[in-house]
Deep mutational scan, measured.
Amino acid sequence: TNFTTRQLTELEKEFHFNKYLSRARRVEIAATLELNETQVKIWFQNRRMKQKK
């Protein structure tokens, strides 16, 4: 998935405060950013892996 700059900014901002999202928060973010819930979930999984390295 190619994310827009706005989407990436918002996802990174959320990640800064929360490494893990509740389902409710994931649904909320997905709706706000016009993404589906799975895209948000996978982005967070990938971002956590990236941070571990």
Rank of each mutant, 00 (worst) to 15 (best):
T1G: 12
T1M: 12
N2P: 06
N2S: 10
N2M: 06
N2L: 06
N2W: 03
N2I: 08
N2H: 12
F3M: 09
F3R: 00
F3G: 01
F3V: 02
F3Q: 04
T4Q: 02
T4L: 04
T4N: 06
T4R: 01
T4E: 02
T4C: 01
T4V: 00
T4A: 00
T5N: 11
T5W: 08
T5L: 11
T5H: 08
T5A: 14
T5R: 09
T5P: 12
T5G: 11
T5E: 15
R6H: 15
R6E: 15
R6Y: 14
R6F: 14
R6V: 10
R6T: 13
R6P: 06
R6N: 12
Q7V: 05
Q7D: 02
Q7E: 03
Q7M: 01
Q7N: 00
Q7H: 04
L8Y: 06
L8A: 06
L8W: 05
L8C: 06
T9F: 07
T9M: 13
T9E: 14
T9G: 08
T9N: 13
T9S: 13
T9P: 06
E10K: 08
E10I: 11
E10Y: 14
E10N: 06
E10P: 02
L11V: 03
L11I: 02
L11E: 03
L11K: 00
L11G: 04
L11M: 02
E12C: 01
E12R: 03
E12H: 00
E12M: 05
E12S: 04
E12Y: 01
E12P: 00
K13P: 04
K13A: 06
K13W: 02
K13N: 01
K13H: 04
K13M: 06
K13G: 03
K13T: 04
K13Q: 08
E14F: 07
E14M: 11
E14T: 04
E14H: 09
E14Q: 10
E14A: 11
E14L: 08
F15G: 03
F15C: 02
F15W: 07
F15A: 05
F15M: 01
F15E: 01
F15V: 03
F15D: 00
H16L: 14
H16T: 15
H16D: 15
H16F: 07
F17E: 14
F17T: 14
F17G: 10
F17L: 14
F17M: 11
F17Q: 15
F17H: 11
F17W: 08
N18M: 05
N18F: 02
N18R: 08
N18Q: 05
N18A: 04
N18T: 07
N18D: 08
N18C: 12
N18V: 01
N18H: 11
K19V: 07
K19L: 02
K19N: 15
K19H: 13
K19P: 15
K19Y: 04
K19A: 14
Y20F: 12
Y20P: 14
Y20N: 11
Y20A: 06
Y20D: 15
Y20V: 14
Y20Q: 11
Y20L: 09
Y20H: 12
L21G: 01
L21K: 00
L21V: 10
L21M: 03
L21S: 06
L21I: 11
L21N: 04
S22V: 03
S22G: 08
S22M: 00
S22H: 00
S22N: 10
R23G: 07
R23D: 13
R23F: 10
R23H: 14
R23W: 15
R23C: 08
A24S: 12
A24V: 08
A24E: 14
A24W: 06
A24G: 09
R25N: 04
R25Y: 02
R25A: 05
R25E: 06
R25G: 01
R25P: 03
R25Q: 08
R25V: 03
R25F: 02
R25M: 04
R26N: 08
R26K: 08
R26P: 04
R26V: 15
R26A: 15
V27F: 11
V27Y: 11
V27H: 15
V27D: 04
V27S: 06
V27W: 05
E28P: 00
E28S: 11
E28G: 07
E28R: 13
E28Y: 07
I29E: 02
I29D: 00
I29C: 10
I29N: 07
A30G: 04
A30I: 00
A30N: 06
A30F: 00
A30R: 01
A30E: 01
A31V: 05
A31D: 09
A31W: 05
A31G: 11
T32I: 07
T32V: 07
T32G: 09
T32D: 07
T32K: 12
L33Q: 03
L33C: 06
L33F: 00
L33A: 06
L33M: 05
L33Y: 06
E34S: 12
E34Y: 04
E34R: 14
E34N: 13
E34A: 13
E34D: 13
E34F: 09
E34K: 13
E34L: 10
E34M: 09
E34G: 15
L35S: 01
L35F: 07
L35G: 01
L35Q: 00
L35C: 10
L35E: 03
L35W: 00
N36Q: 14
N36D: 14
N36T: 15
N36F: 02
N36S: 15
N36E: 13
E37T: 07
E37M: 01
E37D: 05
E37I: 05
E37W: 05
E37L: 03
T38R: 10
T38P: 01
T38E: 14
T38N: 12
T38K: 14
T38M: 12
Q39L: 07
Q39M: 10
Q39T: 12
Q39N: 02
Q39V: 09
Q39A: 12
Q39G: 01
Q39E: 12
V40P: 03
V40K: 03
V40G: 03
V40R: 03
V40T: 01
V40N: 00
K41F: 07
K41L: 10
K41A: 15
K41M: 11
K41G: 12
K41S: 15
K41T: 12
I42M: 11
I42P: 05
I42K: 10
I42W: 14
W43K: 00
W43M: 00
W43Y: 01
W43H: 01
W43P: 00
W43L: 01
F44S: 03
F44L: 04
F44E: 02
F44K: 07
F44G: 02
F44N: 05
Q45M: 09
Q45T: 09
Q45E: 15
Q45W: 05
Q45F: 07
Q45L: 07
Q45A: 11
N46H: 14
N46E: 15
N46C: 10
R47S: 06
R47G: 00
R47D: 03
R47Y: 02
R47Q: 07
R47E: 12
R47K: 07
R47T: 04
R47H: 03
R48M: 12
R48E: 14
R48Y: 01
R48V: 09
R48L: 15
R48I: 11
R48C: 10
M49S: 07
M49E: 14
M49D: 12
M49I: 07
M49C: 07
M49R: 10
M49G: 08
K50H: 11
K50S: 14
K50T: 12
Q51T: 08
Q51G: 10
Q51E: 15
Q51Y: 13
Q51F: 04
K52G: 15
K52R: 12
K52V: 09
K52F: 08
K52H: 14
K53Q: 06
K53S: 15
K53A: 07
K53P: 11
